[in-house]
């Protein structure tokens, strides 16, 4: 592409405007979490008191604990199932259309549809809903994401080394542990980190499958309830912490497996 000064200036202006649009709302939110005053908008000095008040808020702490349980358990199950699924599909190289649709569907199906489907399903089974039903639901989309990350890695995998390992007398388990796993491990960990983040942030499906009562409220559900009530600097502080956690997990995931964020 040709580069005239006017064109370069134009391109730079577009980049500045777009990044301002993307980051100013977040920056304002984070800055106001350190605001001394109770007013959520006017700056009146630096303070960490809203972070301190979070630490004393039992509703938020129990929601955070619930979120951690849901995210850890659903990530563990999804990583195991998603990795095995990826290996199964790629090793046989039989890409049936129905199979592809089944694996792809959880990633494109609107959250609200999966949410009401699971709500109907669980209530028809007369299942008492709680953290366990949220976990069952989160595994559905998490395993699809883990599977797609691991599959991308396996596309360039040379399956003849698996055969070679078997020919040399290694058992299937030894072959997996010593040959396949080391190759795909970065993708598996990256997929797990992605699944963890998705689960921590997921709101709609958790909201519909949590059942009644506060006992199974997750952090996003707690945040939603607080936002509906109004703006408080406490929400800003909580939002800042949640964002820091997801962004750290995603950055780690990206480093382990470049390309996960779509590059």
């Amino acid at each position: 592409m040709t580069s005239s000064p006017a064109r370069a200036f134009g391109m730079r202006t577009i980049l500045i405007l777009v990044f301002a649009f993307l980051y100013i709302p977040i920056a304002v939110l984070v800055a106001l979490s350190f605001n001394k005053g109770g007013l959520p908008t006017a700056w009146s000095g630096f303070s960490l008191k809203w972070y301190a008040s979070l630490a004393g808020n039992s509703a938020i702490l129990s929601a955070a604990l619930n979120t951690l349980i849901v995210a850890l358990v659903s990530t563990a199950i999804a990583t195991l199932l998603g990795t095995l699924l990826a290996i199964g599909v790629e090793m046989r190289r039989q890409y049936g259309k129905g199979l592809e649709a089944l694996i792809f569907a959880p990633m494109i199906i609107p959250d609200i549809v999966l949410a009401i489907a699971l709500l109907s399903f669980f209530s028809m089974l007369n299942l008492t809903m709680g953290l366990h039903t949220i976990i069952l639901a989160h595994v559905v989309f998490n395993l699809a994401f883990v599977c797609s990350v691991v599959r991308a890695r396996l596309k360039s995998f040379d399956w003849s080394i698996v055969e070679a390992s078997a020919d040399l007398g290694a058992s299937a388990i030894t072959t997996f542990r010593r040959v396949t796993l080391p190759v795909i491990l970065p993708a598996v960990v990256a997929g797990a980190l992605l699944a963890f983040t998705l689960s921590v942030d997921e709101f709609i499906i958790a909201f519909f499958t949590a059942g009644a009562g506060r006992a199974s409220t997750t952090l996003p559900m707690q945040i939603y309830a607080m936002i509906r009530f109004g703006i408080t600097p406490e929400i800003n502080a909580l939002a800042t912490i949640v964002m820091a956690v997801s962004i750290t997990a995603l950055t780690l995931s990206q480093r382990l497996n470049p390309g996960i964020t779509g590059q």
Binding site: V28, F203, I223, I227, A239, S246, L250, Q254, G262
Partner: peptide, 22 residues
């Protein structure tokens, strides 16, 4: 590209709340 996509991976509710603040 990384920084353009980064906000997308943070919580949807929080990104929406940021607009209430604005």
């Amino acid at each position: 590209l990384f920084f353009a996509v980064l906000p997308f991976w943070s919580n949807y509710l929080i990104r929406t709340y940021a607009w209430i603040v604005l």
